[in-house]
Measured scan of single mutants.
Amino acid sequence: KAKLLVLLYAFVATDADTICIGYHANNSTDTVDTILEKNVAVTHSVNLLEDSHNGKLCKLKGIAPLQLGKCNITGWLLGNPECDSLLPARSWSYIVETPNSENGACYPGDLIDYEELREQLSSVSSLERFEIFPKESSWPNHTFNGVTVSCSHRGKSSFYRNLLWLTKKGDSYPKLTNSYVNNKGKEVLVLWGVHHPSSSDEQQSLYSNGNAYVSVASSNYNRRFTPEIAARPKVRDQHGRMNYYWTLLEPGDTIIFEATGNLIAPWYAFALSRGFESGIITSNASMHECNTKCQTPQGAINSNLPFQNIHPVTIGECPKYVRSTKLRMVTGLRNIPSIQYRGLFGAIAGFIEGGWTGMIDGWYGYHHQNEQGSGYAADQKSTQNAINGITNKVNSVIEKMNTQFTAVGKEFNNLEKRMENLNKKVDDGFLDIWTYNAELLVLLENERTLDFHDLNVKNLYEKVKSQLKNNAKEIGNGCFEFYHKCDNECMESVRNGTYDYPKYSEESKLNR
């Protein structure tokens, strides 16, 4: 008799109507990190870190770059004969040098303040090359056809396309004075040089004057150069050297050249137009028929994500570079809930034993079982409120962090190594801060989002509990077992918050 009662009780308990509160689960393989956990499985997430590029040089917003090819900045601007293909260059979106560009200054020497000139050019998007001192009329008392084997072109001695090597005419090199007034309405880049012979005999042979000088002056520039005559090792078949100089001439300003020898005179100059998204990159990537809004030396990035880990040097509207390998923000729920887990921000989770793959029309909802059958029903209101809140948060985070910009490298010469090392340390410090901030932001927001979901499920549970009161009992896994019969209409009233407690209280009292 006792065995019969136990079996009867078990049958009745199993047959009781139930309603459970749960949440969506799926077959997603997404994982995120939080402050407290690593690799948390979630139903949905968004990636904030771009880690792919196309490996190509592309047009930037429809404008092609200027590819210097086998030449570098120095060779292009001075007019190395091997860089003749660059003479027609007028406009570009950015400038590309190759790491091993070999054609710079063909006659050995240095372009002074080269690093600063590169910085200036990094904001130039177009130029006009014009004859600042016409070759045939500007130097009537001097020979202007100086050439050298060091600047050979097609097997013949030649010289820079933008400079003139002035030497004596006959047996004399009379003092020369020439000036140019900038009437271009924009900055003009003027380049010139000073020749330093290897011996007094060479000085006399070329310029006749043993104590020659070169003077260059404008409103913002004033220097006097004296040739340094000295024996030097042979470089590119030359014992002599040429140093090259430049200045930016403001609109309306005048530049005056005065010399008694050794002047490498300007022939062509450049009127410059600035462009905020221009820059110089060093890259071996090849040019393709493609378009982008962000270019790196590795390749083009076409992404609206706020961060990238491809390269710190970028041109155009680019994500911020960070050292992170993963920045994924959760938008959905835990896919593998932890039992009795309390989140960092106070939300209680884990009283549900598992997510439901059968509930596909919402994030949170119900599963019921009664004599009429069983089924899932999503709670659309709480789901939609959660979707709206999380979507707004993700968009806000992306908008705040998605300050796209150009980031170019800084140039230092060989004598500025300590400054370069200090600059690298400062840049590394800023990069570490950006990386830390980005990672911390994602970790915190992921923790908040998961706790937010847990709290929403808990609130749904409490909503049902407050309606049923003692007409049902909690069975410990997020479910309630009714003390009365609850048909589909009754189940719907529980879900929509209109459950009639008094209607079922007498039946429940008897069954309790």
Score class of each variant (00 low, 15 high):
Ile229Leu: 14
Val124Glu: 00
Thr74Gln: 07
Ala265His: 10
Gly146Thr: 09
Val214Gly: 01
Ala271Ser: 15
Gly62Pro: 01
Ser91Gly: 12
Leu8Trp: 14
Gly185Cys: 01
Ala13Ile: 08
Asp253Gln: 15
Ala16Val: 09
Cys20Lys: 11
Thr226Ala: 12
Asn209Pro: 07
Leu36Glu: 06
Tyr160Ala: 01
Gln204His: 00
Asn145Phe: 13
Gln120Lys: 05
Lys169Tyr: 14
Ile95Trp: 10
Pro99Thr: 07
Leu7Phe: 15
Gln204Val: 13
Leu36Pro: 03
Ser93Met: 04
Ser52Ile: 02
Cys58Lys: 04
Leu121Glu: 03
Leu78Pro: 14
Lys184Pro: 03
Asn262Gln: 00
Val190His: 05
Gly240Phe: 05
Gly279Asp: 06
Ala89Gly: 11
Gly79Lys: 04
Ile255Phe: 06
Val214Ile: 13
Gly109Ile: 03
Val194Cys: 06
Asp15Phe: 04
Pro266Met: 12
Pro227Asn: 14
Phe225Thr: 10
Gly240Ser: 09
Arg118Asn: 06
Thr31Lys: 06
Gln204Gly: 01
Phe270Tyr: 09
Tyr213Leu: 01
Ser150Phe: 06
Thr43Ser: 07
Cys83Gln: 06
Pro108Cys: 03
Glu136Phe: 06
Gly75Thr: 02
Arg129Asn: 05
Thr167Glu: 07
Gly62Gln: 10
Asp237Asn: 10
Ser91Ala: 05
His153Tyr: 12
Lys184Thr: 02
Phe130Asn: 06
Asn39Thr: 02
Phe159Pro: 06
Lys1Thr: 15
Gly170Ile: 04
Trp246Val: 01
Tyr221Pro: 00
Leu249Phe: 00
Asn72Arg: 07
Glu102Pro: 14
Val194Leu: 14
Thr18Pro: 00
Lys1Val: 11
Leu66Gly: 01
Arg154Leu: 14
Ser273Tyr: 11
Gly69Cys: 03
Thr143Cys: 03
Glu50Trp: 03
Thr14Ala: 12
Val32Asn: 00
Asp17Cys: 07
Ala2Asp: 10
His239Phe: 07
Ile281Ala: 03
Gln67Ser: 10
Glu116Arg: 02
Gly55Arg: 11
Ser122Gln: 12
Leu7Met: 09
Phe130Asp: 09
Asp253His: 09
Pro251Asp: 11
Val188Tyr: 01
Tyr244Arg: 10
Arg224Phe: 14
Glu277Val: 06
Gly79Gln: 09
Trp76Pro: 01
Ala231Val: 13
Thr282Tyr: 02
Asn26His: 09
Leu36Ala: 09
Ser172Pro: 03
Asp253Ile: 00
Val149Phe: 15
Gly104Gln: 03
Ala265Ile: 08
Ser158Ala: 14
Leu127Ile: 12
Ser28Asp: 00
Gly275His: 09
Thr34Ile: 07
Ala25Trp: 02
Leu191Gly: 02
Thr14Pro: 14
Val181Asn: 12
Leu78Phe: 04
Met242Asp: 05
Asn103Trp: 10
Cys106Gln: 02
Ser123Gly: 14
Val188Cys: 06
Tyr173Leu: 03
Pro65Ser: 04
Ile63Leu: 12
Tyr114Gln: 13
Arg274Lys: 14
Trp246Tyr: 10
Glu37Gly: 10
Ser101Leu: 00
